[in-house]
C-alpha cells in the first residue's frame, strides 16, 4: 500500500469485522528517537493463541469471502522493511492490539498519507463503533473521539453528509496545526 494511513484503515476494518465497538488509534511521530509508532487496539473478539501464531501467514484467514488474508502480512512487511517491528497481542473475547514501529527517516518508509480520508472512511462504517484517535508529532498532540462528537451531533448520524463535511474541515485544520513546524 502506498500510504501508512491505508494500512491503518485496513487494520481498523479488521477490528470492525471482529465485532469491536471501541477502537483506539494512536500515532506517535518522534523525530528525536527517529521513530514512527502506530498502535491500533480494539475490544473485538480477539484470537486464540493458536490463531495468533499463524495470523501473519497470508493463507490464514477467518473470513469466508476469500481464502487469503493479506492485510496484516503487508502491514508487518512495511514495518520490517523500514528497520522497524510489528507486534500483535490478542486475547480471546477481549480484543487485539497491533503495534507497528518504523524508523522515521528510513528511505522505504511510506508517508502517513491522507489520514483525514482514513478517519472519515472509518466513521462511515456500517457498524456502530467509537473511534478514539490520538496523534502526537514531537510534543504536539491532537486527540478526538467519536463519543464526544456524537454527543454534540445528537440525532444527526456521523455519516450524515453535513456531519462528514464538518468533520473533514475540523480534521484538516487540526492536522495542519499539528504539522506546522515540520513533519511529513
Amino acid at each position: 500500500m502506498r500510504e501508512l494511513s491505508l494500512h491503518i484503515l485496513d487494520a481498523v476494518q479488521n477490528s470492525i469485522e471482529a465485532d469491536a465497538n471501541r477502537i483506539y488509534v494512536k500515532i506517535r511521530e518522534d523525530f528525536g528517537r527517529d521513530k514512527l509508532i502506530i498502535e491500533i487496539e480494539d475490544n473485538g473478539k480477539g484470537m486464540t493463541p493458536e490463531f495468533l501464531k499463524e495470523v501473519l501467514d497470508p493463507f490464514k484467514t477467518t473470513r469466508k469471502t476469500r481464502h487469503v488474508g493479506l492485510g496484516l502480512p503487508l502491514f508487518s512487511a512495511a514495518a520490517k522493511n523500514c528497520n522497524g517491528d510489528f507486534k500483535i497481542t490478542s486475547k480471546k473475547d477481549k480484543g487485539t492490539k497491533i503495534t507497528a514501529t518504523f524508523q522515521y527517516s528510513h528511505i522505504d518508509r511510506a508517508p502517513l498519507g491522507d489520514i483525514v480520508s482514513t478517519i472519515l472512511a472509518i466513521l462511515c462504517s456500517d457498524k456502530e463503533i467509537d473511534l478514539f484517535y490520538h496523534h502526537q508529532v514531537d510534543n504536539k498532540k491532537f486527540e478526538f473521539n467519536t463519543q464526544k462528537l456524537k454527543k454534540i451531533l445528537g440525532n444527526i448520524p456521523l455519516a450524515n453528509i453535513n456531519a462528514i463535511k464538518w468533520l473533514k474541515s475540523y480534521l484538516k485544520y487540526n492536522f495542519k496545526e499539528l504539522y506546522k513546524n515540520g513533519g511529513v
Partner: peptide, 16 residues
C-alpha cells in the same frame, strides 16, 4: 467495499 482488496484498489479515494 473497504476490505484489504478494496483499499488496495483505491476504494478510499473512490469514497471521497
Amino acid at each position: 467495499g473497504m476490505g484489504t482488496c478494496g483499499i488496495a484498489a483505491g476504494a478510499r479515494e473512490v469514497m471521497h
